[in-house]
Design a protein around this nucleic acid. Structure first.
Length: 261
DNA sequence: AATTCGGCCAACCGCCAGCGT
DNA sequence: CACGCTGGCGGTTGGCCGAAT
């Protein structure tokens, strides 16, 4: 029978959002809150489909969003979480306040993948590339089975499937639950984050750090040593008054929107 | 200066799950 | 149970921009 499109696409605008559209959507959401995205474009006076509005809001307009590159610590978390969750970007993003799944996905594909490969780690399996290559030489059946399981139940199965492997990431995470977000070998991650010339921590690190907003965020909650957290207290002080970036996403259903602007 | 190339990222597309009827 | 609607998710794409030639 075919599914109807989410909205009537005739006459709807696509492509980049203009400043005026942003303003309209922002004003509407801040005034009325998030409800029924299908109705938002009409009510807000936008020639967009509801889906597009939702994406624009969640990926760009949300006031709690951080801007700028992911910090080294955030990268570590992403790598660690990816080793447990696979490509479940929204789940990963839920552990990184102020970051969107789209942002993390993009960062993974453009930065972290390269770094891991450069470190000799397969970004898909988080195993050393040498082991992955060995496995690829084995009959396909042996390889396919665990990969399928990973896709279906990555949280636990991706751990158990490697119970006999040399996966350094997996092995270190075996005893933790997902919510505890354990760290992986700090030395290894330091190498990943610091040794690559493409790393955000390279020559322009100091300027980039100024874009990060980590006030009041206790990295130890995520199993990350605060000692490794770059000292950007000065930036923190500046940001402290207007940062909402560390709120739980779920809190957003109840914020006092009008106070933000 | 002009052109080409590659990286990056915002946005789109299609699918799926959950919910209500 | 079947169906339709909506929101959410992950993969992909297209365009912009800076670097290289």
């Amino acid at each position: 029978m075919g599914r109807q499109p989410c909205c009537d696409k005739v006459g709807l605008k696509k492509g980049p959002w203009s400043a005026d559209e942003d303003r309209k959507l922002m004003n509407f959401i801040l005034t009325h809150g998030q409800c029924c995205w299908r109705a938002v474009p009409k009510l807000a006076g936008l020639l967009r489909c509801g889906k597009s509005c939702r994406l624009r809001w969640t990926n760009y307009l949300r006031p709690d969003l951080k801007r700028g590159l992911l910090s080294d610590h955030e990268e570590k978390m992403v790598i660690d979480l990816h080793s447990q969750l696979g490509n479940r970007w929204s789940k990963i993003a839920s552990h990184l306040p102020g970051r969107t799944d789209n942002e993390i996905k993009n960062h993974w594909n453009t930065h972290i993948k390269k770094k891991l490969r450069k470190m000799g780690i397969d970004p898909l399996t988080h195993k050393p590339l040498s082991i992955v290559e060995q496995e690829e030489e084995k009959p396909l059946k042996k390889l396919q089975k665990p990969m399928e399981q990973t896709a279906e139940e990555p949280t636990n199965d991706c751990l158990t499937k490697d119970s006999n492997s040399k996966n350094m990431f997996m092995a270190m995470n075996l005893e933790y639950g997902v919510e505890e977000v354990p760290t992986i070998d700090p030395e290894c991650l330091e190498l990943i984050c610091n040794n690559s010339p493409t790393s955000s921590s390279s020559s322009n690190e100091s300027s980039i750090l100024k874009d990060f907003q980590f006030p009041d965020f206790d990295w130890s909650d995520y199993g990350i040593d605060n000692n490794n957290h770059h000292n950007n207290n000065g930036v923190d002080n500046i940001m402290e008054n207007n940062v909402m970036s560390l709120w739980d996403v779920d809190d957003f259903s109840s914020w006092d929107l009008c106070n933000i602007i």
